[in-house]
Each structure stands twice: as structure tokens, then as C-alpha cells.
């Protein structure tokens, strides 16, 4: 082929740069694209079509929540009445279950995050530092909840919770024990990825040899270095708990998702409003995780 091709290799960076108008056009005319990358036009068309299709249901939810009254002569009236209705004290009894469910979900979030921080994280550190041979075992355990679907685990949770109720009572927070299991794969991955990028053994041995006790190693070395993985694990835990429906519905506890399903039959508009808000909240949480991750990559690259 032409020598030009080898002079101008198509790497992602270069093609991003070549978005500049004239130089790019010249290059595009002279050298054919030979990598896997799509042409800018193809990329734009595919992504635009995908974005439009995926936004339709979200737009439909917003449109639905803005509907006021029945259509008159085929014309639908719109307004924000349903949004205000949420805060109207007169409707307090109607939304009590919903707000109770949200409250319960937040409590379960807090306890599940605590399970991740107090049970999973120290175990991962201990395995990493003292029992590296158990690493594969721990990974396997943490991935099991993906292979055994919640709907199957629930069949076993029902009898287990007969005992849990006897020991801890039937308060909604007890659900956190079961939800903590569902969360394991999601919480494990970011922390493990963070650990793999560091040599924790060397770091802790270095600080030990400089005289630090284990408490100092934990507080001053391990936690600060793992904070990105830990934050990601906590955020993703919150997102999973807020979206959890299967376990709560089978164990007849009132959480956010089960209360949404109940509300759907009495006030579908408000149920849809809260569904949109929850999706947006989850999106923002994950966006923050993404930024945390890429900030970490950039810093490592610059070191």
C-alpha cells in the first residue's frame, strides 16, 4: 500500500484530533480508513438514532406525569398539578406508604453500606494482605449472586426470615441482610479493581517497617489509597438498594419499589414522577462514579 498509510497511523487520539475541518478532510480523501472505527457520519447517525429511541420512554413518562384531566375533543391538557399534589397535606394519607417506603429504603441503604464497609471491605483487605491464596475463593463467593437469581434466593430467604424475625423482629431494616448479598458482586468489583491497581502488600509492609501500627496502616495507608473504589462501591450499593424489588415484595416489606407498584393503581401519575426521579438519581450517582474512576486514571497517567 501507499507509504502515506504508515506515516499516518490511525490511532484514537489522532482521529479525535482530525475532527479539525480542512486537514481532516484532506486526510480522509487521501488515505482510506482501515481500522475498526466508523466514519464520523456513521457514528453520528447510529448514536442519534439510539439516543432518540432510548429517550422516547423517558419522554413518555414525563409527558404522562404532566397530563391533567381527560382529553377534551382529543386535546390533552397539561400542567404541573400532579407535582404539586405530592406536597399537598390533603393527600398525606395517599402518599404515606410511598414516603414510608422511601424512608425504609434509605435505612436499608445505610445498613447495606455498613455491611459493605464493615464485613466485605475488611475481609477483602485481610485476604489481600494475609491470605492471597483465598483471593479466588472470595471472588467466586462474591459473584455467586449473579448466577443464582434473586427470584431463586427468595425461595430460600422466606424460611430464613422466619428465624430472622424471631431474633431481630420484623422491622424493614432486617431486609438489609438479604440485600447485602445481592449487592456483593456490585460492591466487590470496584474495590477489587482499585486493589489490583496498587501493591497493598508493599505499601503496608513499607509503613509497618517504618513503625506504623496496623491501625495507622489501615487509617493512613489503606483507606486513603482505596477511597475511589470504596466510594464507587457505596454509591453503586445505594443504587442497587433503591432499585431492589424482588426480595422486598416476597418478604412483604414496604420499600421504595414495592410502594411504587402499590401507588401505580391509586395514583399512576405520582408513581411515574417518582420513577423518573429515581432513574435520574441513579444516573447521577453512576455519573459521579464514572468521574471518580476517570479522575483516578488521569492521575495515575500523570504520575
Amino acid at each position: 500500500m501507499s507509504g502515506r498509510a504508515s506515516v499516518a497511523p490511525m490511532s484514537p487520539q489522532l482521529s479525535a484530533v482530525s475532527a479539525q475541518p480542512s486537514a481532516a478532510r484532506a486526510r480522509r480523501q487521501q488515505s482510506p480508513r482501515f481500522g475498526a472505527e466508523p466514519s464520523p457520519a456513521a457514528r453520528r447517525i447510529i448514536l442519534t438514532v439510539a439516543a432518540v429511541i432510548f429517550l422516547i420512554p423517558i419522554v413518555a413518562m414525563v409527558e404522562f406525569s404532566l397530563r391533567v384531566g381527560q382529553p377534551v375533543n382529543g386535546v390533552q391538557g397539561y400542567g404541573v398539578a400532579h407535582y404539586f399534589a405530592v406536597f399537598d397535606p390533603a393527600n398525606g394519607s395517599m402518599y404515606r406508604t410511598l414516603f414510608q417506603g422511601i424512608g425504609n429504603s434509605l435505612t436499608i441503604c445505610a445498613i447495606t453500606v455498613l455491611i459493605v464497609l464493615v464485613l466485605l471491605l475488611p475481609t477483602m483487605l485481610l485476604v489481600e494482605l494475609k491470605f492471597p491464596r483465598l483471593r479466588r475463593v472470595l471472588e467466586f463467593i462474591c459473584i455467586i449472586p449473579i448466577t443464582i437469581p434473586s427470584i431463586v434466593l427468595v425461595v430460600g430467604f422466606v424460611p430464613v426470615y422466619h428465624t430472622v424475625v424471631r431474633v431481630f423482629g420484623s422491622a424493614p431494616w432486617t431486609l438489609a441482610f438479604a440485600v447485602g448479598i445481592i449487592v456483593l458482586p456490585y460492591a466487590y468489583r470496584p474495590i477489587a479493581a482499585n486493589m489490583a491497581a496498587l501493591d497493598l502488600v508493599v505499601l503496608s509492609e513499607a509503613s509497618r517497617s517504618l513503625g506504623a501500627g496496623w491501625a495507622d496502616v489501615f487509617r493512613l495507608i489503606l483507606l486513603p489509597n482505596l477511597r475511589r473504589g470504596i466510594f464507587s462501591a457505596c454509591f453503586i450499593t445505594i443504587a442497587v438498594v433503591l432499585g431492589e424489588y424482588t426480595i422486598a415484595s416476597f418478604l412483604s416489606r414496604n420499600v421504595f419499589q414495592t410502594s411504587l407498584v402499590l401507588l401505580k393503581s391509586t395514583d399512576p401519575y405520582v408513581a411515574v414522577i417518582f420513577a423518573v426521579l429515581a432513574l435520574i438519581f441513579g444516573f447521577v450517582l453512576l455519573l459521579i462514579i464514572g468521574r471518580l474512576g476517570s479522575a483516578g486514571r488521569n492521575r495515575k497517567a500523570s504520575l
Binding site: 422516547i56 420512554p57 443504587a239 433503591l242 432499585g243 424489588y245 432513574l279 444516573f283 447521577v284 453512576l286
Partner: peptide, 29 residues
């Protein structure tokens, strides 16, 4: 990435609502 993650992993009930509002009896489409 974030949008994919939300829809793929945490949608559940809320995705059902989205489609009720889109192609349900009273849906937009």
C-alpha cells in the same frame, strides 16, 4: 456508561412504568 448502567442493572419496576407510559393503553405512542 452511566445511562447504560442505570437501565441495565437498576431499572426493574421503573422500566415497566416507562413502557406503560409509552405503549400502554394510555401511552404516548
Amino acid at each position: 456508561d452511566s445511562a447504560s448502567s442505570v437501565l441495565a442493572q437498576f431499572g426493574g419496576v421503573m422500566l415497566a412504568f416507562a413502557f406503560i407510559a409509552t405503549i400502554g393503553t394510555q401511552g404516548l405512542i
